[in-house]
Protein backbone atom coordinates (compact mmCIF):
# COMPACT_ATOMS: atom_id res chain seq x y z
CA UNK A 1 0.00 0.00 0.00
CA UNK A 2 1.19 3.49 -0.78
CA UNK A 3 2.71 5.29 2.20
CA UNK A 4 0.13 8.04 2.16
CA UNK A 5 1.18 9.62 5.44
CA UNK A 6 4.63 10.27 4.09
CA UNK A 7 3.31 11.78 0.83
CA UNK A 8 0.86 13.96 2.74
CA UNK A 9 3.68 15.32 4.87
CA UNK A 10 6.17 15.65 2.03
CA UNK A 11 3.81 17.58 -0.24
CA UNK A 12 2.61 19.79 2.60
CA UNK A 13 6.24 20.68 3.30
CA UNK A 14 6.70 21.64 -0.34
CA UNK A 15 3.45 23.55 -0.37
CA UNK A 16 4.33 25.62 2.67
CA UNK A 17 7.80 26.33 1.33
CA UNK A 18 6.30 27.37 -2.00
CA UNK A 19 3.95 29.87 -0.38
CA UNK A 20 6.51 31.04 2.18
CA UNK A 21 9.14 31.73 -0.49
CA UNK A 22 6.55 33.55 -2.60
CA UNK A 23 5.23 35.41 0.45
CA UNK A 24 1.67 34.95 -0.75
CA UNK A 25 -1.72 33.63 0.26
CA UNK A 26 -4.11 30.82 -0.82
CA UNK A 27 -2.38 28.46 1.60
CA UNK A 28 -5.37 27.10 3.49
CA UNK A 29 -7.50 26.40 0.43
CA UNK A 30 -4.57 24.51 -1.10
CA UNK A 31 -4.12 22.47 2.08
CA UNK A 32 -7.79 21.55 2.10
CA UNK A 33 -7.68 19.94 -1.36
CA UNK A 34 -4.12 18.61 -1.46
CA UNK A 35 -5.17 15.13 -0.34
CA UNK A 36 -7.83 15.02 -3.05
CA UNK A 37 -5.19 15.73 -5.67
CA UNK A 38 -2.90 13.06 -4.19
CA UNK A 39 -5.72 10.51 -4.44
CA UNK A 40 -6.63 11.56 -7.98
CA UNK A 41 -3.11 11.51 -9.37
CA UNK A 42 -2.47 8.20 -7.65
CA UNK A 43 -5.47 6.67 -9.45
CA UNK A 44 -5.70 8.32 -12.82
CA UNK A 45 -4.39 6.80 -16.01
CA UNK A 46 -1.56 8.72 -17.70
CA UNK A 47 -3.78 10.09 -20.45
CA UNK A 48 -6.64 11.03 -18.15
CA UNK A 49 -6.98 14.64 -17.06
CA UNK A 50 -7.74 16.30 -13.74
CA UNK A 51 -9.36 19.71 -14.09
CA UNK A 52 -8.58 21.92 -11.09
CA UNK A 53 -11.62 24.14 -11.30
CA UNK A 54 -10.74 25.82 -7.99
CA UNK A 55 -7.73 27.39 -9.63
CA UNK A 56 -6.84 29.41 -6.55
CA UNK A 57 -5.40 26.17 -5.14
CA UNK A 58 -2.77 26.22 -7.89
CA UNK A 59 0.01 25.68 -5.36
CA UNK A 60 -1.42 22.27 -4.48
CA UNK A 61 -1.49 21.30 -8.16
CA UNK A 62 2.04 22.58 -8.74
CA UNK A 63 3.55 20.56 -5.88
CA UNK A 64 1.57 17.54 -7.07
CA UNK A 65 2.99 17.91 -10.58
CA UNK A 66 6.43 18.45 -9.08
CA UNK A 67 5.96 15.16 -7.25
CA UNK A 68 4.99 13.38 -10.49
CA UNK A 69 7.98 14.91 -12.28
CA UNK A 70 6.14 17.20 -14.68
CA UNK A 71 7.27 20.40 -12.97
CA UNK A 72 10.96 20.48 -12.07
CA UNK A 73 12.27 21.85 -8.77
CA UNK A 74 13.82 24.72 -10.69
CA UNK A 75 10.52 25.54 -12.39
CA UNK A 76 8.65 25.27 -9.10
CA UNK A 77 11.07 27.83 -7.68
CA UNK A 78 9.80 30.40 -10.16
CA UNK A 79 6.27 30.41 -8.64
CA UNK A 80 4.88 33.94 -8.39
CA UNK A 81 7.95 35.53 -9.98
CA UNK A 82 7.98 37.65 -13.12
CA UNK A 83 8.50 35.40 -16.14
CA UNK A 84 7.08 32.27 -14.47
CA UNK A 85 4.77 29.71 -16.04
CA UNK A 86 3.38 29.14 -12.55
CA UNK A 87 1.03 32.03 -11.91
CA UNK A 88 -1.10 32.24 -8.79
CA UNK A 89 -3.93 30.65 -10.77
CA UNK A 90 -2.99 28.05 -13.42
CA UNK A 91 -2.24 29.50 -16.84
CA UNK A 92 -2.75 28.05 -20.28
CA UNK A 93 -0.58 26.16 -22.70
CA UNK A 94 2.44 25.17 -20.60
CA UNK A 95 1.94 21.75 -18.99
CA UNK A 96 0.12 18.62 -20.16
CA UNK A 97 -1.58 18.19 -16.82
CA UNK A 98 -2.69 21.81 -16.74
CA UNK A 99 -4.93 21.57 -19.78
CA UNK A 100 -6.89 24.75 -19.05
CA UNK A 101 -6.29 28.09 -17.39
CA UNK A 102 -8.65 28.14 -14.43
CA UNK A 103 -9.25 30.51 -11.57
CA UNK A 104 -12.49 32.20 -12.51
CA UNK A 105 -14.84 29.88 -10.66
CA UNK A 106 -17.52 27.88 -12.39
CA UNK A 107 -15.63 26.96 -15.57
CA UNK A 108 -14.02 23.58 -14.92
CA UNK A 109 -17.17 21.51 -14.52
CA UNK A 110 -18.45 22.51 -17.96
CA UNK A 111 -15.08 21.91 -19.60
CA UNK A 112 -14.78 18.50 -17.94
CA UNK A 113 -18.29 17.64 -19.08
CA UNK A 114 -17.29 18.44 -22.66
CA UNK A 115 -14.25 16.21 -22.29
CA UNK A 116 -16.44 13.44 -20.88
CA UNK A 117 -18.87 13.85 -23.76
CA UNK A 118 -15.95 13.46 -26.15
CA UNK A 119 -14.95 10.19 -24.46
CA UNK A 120 -18.51 8.99 -24.99
CA UNK A 121 -18.43 9.93 -28.68
CA UNK A 122 -15.13 8.08 -29.09
CA UNK A 123 -16.27 5.14 -26.93
CA UNK A 124 -13.18 5.63 -24.77
CA UNK A 125 -13.09 4.02 -21.32
CA UNK A 126 -11.12 6.93 -19.85
CA UNK A 127 -12.50 9.06 -17.02
CA UNK A 128 -12.41 12.80 -16.53
CA UNK A 129 -11.94 14.30 -13.06
CA UNK A 130 -12.87 17.76 -11.92
CA UNK A 131 -12.01 19.22 -8.53
CA UNK A 132 -14.23 22.06 -7.36
CA UNK A 133 -14.53 24.10 -4.20
CA UNK A 134 -17.77 24.13 -2.25
CA UNK A 135 -17.97 27.91 -2.61
CA UNK A 136 -17.75 27.38 -6.35
CA UNK A 137 -21.06 25.57 -6.30
CA UNK A 138 -22.58 29.05 -5.81
CA UNK A 139 -21.93 29.58 -9.52
CA UNK A 140 -24.87 29.07 -11.86
CA UNK A 141 -22.74 27.16 -14.36
CA UNK A 142 -22.32 24.42 -11.74
CA UNK A 143 -26.01 23.68 -12.06
CA UNK A 144 -26.05 24.04 -15.84
CA UNK A 145 -23.21 21.53 -16.07
CA UNK A 146 -24.74 19.24 -13.44
CA UNK A 147 -28.00 18.94 -15.34
CA UNK A 148 -26.14 18.39 -18.60
CA UNK A 149 -23.99 15.64 -17.08
CA UNK A 150 -27.02 13.82 -15.72
CA UNK A 151 -29.15 14.14 -18.83
CA UNK A 152 -26.26 13.00 -21.04
CA UNK A 153 -25.42 10.10 -18.72
CA UNK A 154 -21.79 11.06 -18.23
CA UNK A 155 -20.85 8.21 -15.91
CA UNK A 156 -17.23 8.72 -16.95
CA UNK A 157 -17.20 12.07 -15.13
CA UNK A 158 -16.04 12.18 -11.52
CA UNK A 159 -16.64 15.47 -9.69
CA UNK A 160 -14.86 16.03 -6.39
CA UNK A 161 -16.08 18.82 -4.17
CA UNK A 162 -13.66 20.15 -1.59
CA UNK A 163 -16.24 20.89 1.08
CA UNK A 164 -14.30 22.92 3.62
CA UNK A 165 -17.39 25.01 4.40
CA UNK A 166 -15.57 28.34 4.12
CA UNK A 167 -15.51 30.61 1.12
CA UNK A 168 -14.18 34.03 0.17
CA UNK A 169 -15.85 36.14 2.80
CA UNK A 170 -17.64 33.87 5.22
CA UNK A 171 -19.07 30.44 5.89
CA UNK A 172 -20.83 28.80 2.95
CA UNK A 173 -23.88 28.04 5.07
CA UNK A 174 -24.30 31.75 5.85
CA UNK A 175 -23.88 33.03 2.31
CA UNK A 176 -25.98 31.11 -0.24
CA UNK A 177 -26.60 28.12 1.99
CA UNK A 178 -25.02 24.71 1.69
CA UNK A 179 -24.87 24.59 -2.11
CA UNK A 180 -22.78 21.42 -2.09
CA UNK A 181 -25.17 19.48 0.13
CA UNK A 182 -25.28 15.81 -0.99
CA UNK A 183 -29.09 15.81 -1.04
CA UNK A 184 -29.08 18.30 -3.92
CA UNK A 185 -26.77 16.14 -6.02
CA UNK A 186 -28.70 13.01 -5.14
CA UNK A 187 -31.98 14.59 -6.20
CA UNK A 188 -30.53 15.57 -9.58
CA UNK A 189 -29.51 12.01 -10.34
CA UNK A 190 -25.82 11.84 -9.44
CA UNK A 191 -24.08 8.84 -7.93
CA UNK A 192 -23.17 10.53 -4.65
CA UNK A 193 -20.56 9.56 -2.09
CA UNK A 194 -19.54 11.51 0.99
CA UNK A 195 -16.10 10.98 2.44
CA UNK A 196 -13.46 12.34 4.79
CA UNK A 197 -11.38 14.31 2.29
CA UNK A 198 -8.17 13.74 4.23
CA UNK A 199 -8.47 9.96 4.43
CA UNK A 200 -6.59 8.84 1.36
CA UNK A 201 -7.60 5.20 1.65
CA UNK A 202 -11.26 6.17 1.84
CA UNK A 203 -10.84 8.57 -1.09
CA UNK A 204 -9.26 5.87 -3.22
CA UNK A 205 -12.09 3.50 -2.36
CA UNK A 206 -14.60 6.17 -3.44
CA UNK A 207 -12.84 6.75 -6.74
CA UNK A 208 -12.70 3.00 -7.37
CA UNK A 209 -16.39 2.77 -6.56
CA UNK A 210 -17.10 5.42 -9.21
CA UNK A 211 -15.13 3.51 -11.80
CA UNK A 212 -17.05 0.34 -11.03
CA UNK A 213 -20.46 2.02 -11.06
CA UNK A 214 -21.17 2.58 -14.73
CA UNK A 215 -24.93 2.95 -14.73
CA UNK A 216 -25.33 6.21 -16.58
CA UNK A 217 -25.05 8.41 -13.51
CA UNK A 218 -22.24 10.94 -13.24
CA UNK A 219 -20.35 10.75 -9.97
CA UNK A 220 -19.86 13.30 -7.26
CA UNK A 221 -17.61 12.74 -4.28
CA UNK A 222 -18.36 15.26 -1.59
CA UNK A 223 -15.15 15.40 0.38
CA UNK A 224 -15.53 16.90 3.83
CA UNK A 225 -12.29 18.73 4.42
CA UNK A 226 -10.64 21.17 6.77
CA UNK A 227 -9.45 24.44 5.35
CA UNK A 228 -5.76 24.68 6.31
CA UNK A 229 -5.54 20.95 7.13
CA UNK A 230 -2.29 20.10 8.92
CA UNK A 231 -1.40 23.57 10.18
CA UNK A 232 -3.21 23.96 13.47
CA UNK A 233 -3.44 27.73 13.55
CA UNK A 234 -4.77 27.90 9.99
CA UNK A 235 -7.42 25.22 10.32
CA UNK A 236 -10.97 26.44 9.71
CA UNK A 237 -9.79 30.05 9.60
CA UNK A 238 -11.11 32.07 6.67
CA UNK A 239 -8.28 34.59 6.84
CA UNK A 240 -5.78 31.90 5.77
CA UNK A 241 -7.42 32.02 2.37
CA UNK A 242 -5.50 35.26 1.99
CA UNK A 243 -2.61 35.64 4.43
CA UNK A 244 1.05 34.95 3.76
CA UNK A 245 3.31 33.52 6.48
CA UNK A 246 6.22 35.32 8.11
CA UNK A 247 9.29 33.37 9.25
CA UNK A 248 7.86 32.67 12.70
CA UNK A 249 4.54 31.48 11.30
CA UNK A 250 6.35 29.28 8.79
CA UNK A 251 8.34 27.57 11.52
CA UNK A 252 5.19 27.08 13.58
CA UNK A 253 3.45 25.62 10.53
CA UNK A 254 6.27 23.14 9.96
CA UNK A 255 6.15 22.10 13.60
CA UNK A 256 2.41 21.61 13.33
CA UNK A 257 2.86 19.35 10.31
CA UNK A 258 5.35 17.23 12.21
CA UNK A 259 2.88 16.76 15.06
CA UNK A 260 0.04 15.93 12.67
CA UNK A 261 1.80 13.54 10.32
CA UNK A 262 4.71 12.08 12.32
CA UNK A 263 2.77 11.25 15.43
Amino acid sequence: MTDFNSIQLQLRHKLLKLYFDANCGHIACSLSCLDLLIALFNQKRTQERVILSKGHAAGALYVMLNHTGEISDEELGTFYQNGTKLSAHPSANSFVNIPFALGSLGHGFSIASGMSQSKKIKASSDFVYVLMSDGETNEGTTWEAAHFAVSNQLDNLIVLIDRNRLQGFGETADILGDTSNPIKWQSMGFHVQEVDGHDLNALETCIQECKLTLNGKPHVIIANTIKGKGVDYMENKMEWHYLPMNEEMYQKALASLEREYHA
Binding site: S110, Q117, T141
Partner: peptide, 20 residues
Protein backbone atom coordinates in the same frame (compact mmCIF):
# COMPACT_ATOMS: atom_id res chain seq x y z
CA UNK B 1 -27.16 21.74 -24.48
CA UNK B 2 -30.37 23.35 -23.28
CA UNK B 3 -30.95 26.98 -22.38
CA UNK B 4 -27.54 27.17 -20.73
CA UNK B 5 -25.16 29.11 -22.96
CA UNK B 6 -22.27 29.43 -20.51
CA UNK B 7 -22.12 25.70 -19.95
CA UNK B 8 -22.48 25.13 -23.69
CA UNK B 9 -19.34 27.13 -24.49
CA UNK B 10 -17.42 25.39 -21.68
CA UNK B 11 -18.54 22.04 -23.08
CA UNK B 12 -17.33 23.08 -26.52
CA UNK B 13 -13.92 23.97 -25.11
CA UNK B 14 -13.67 20.55 -23.46
CA UNK B 15 -14.76 18.80 -26.64
CA UNK B 16 -12.32 20.85 -28.71
CA UNK B 17 -9.48 19.98 -26.33
CA UNK B 18 -10.26 16.32 -27.01
CA UNK B 19 -10.13 16.83 -30.78
CA UNK B 20 -13.67 17.85 -31.70
Amino acid sequence: AGVAEQNMVGLAAGLAYEGH
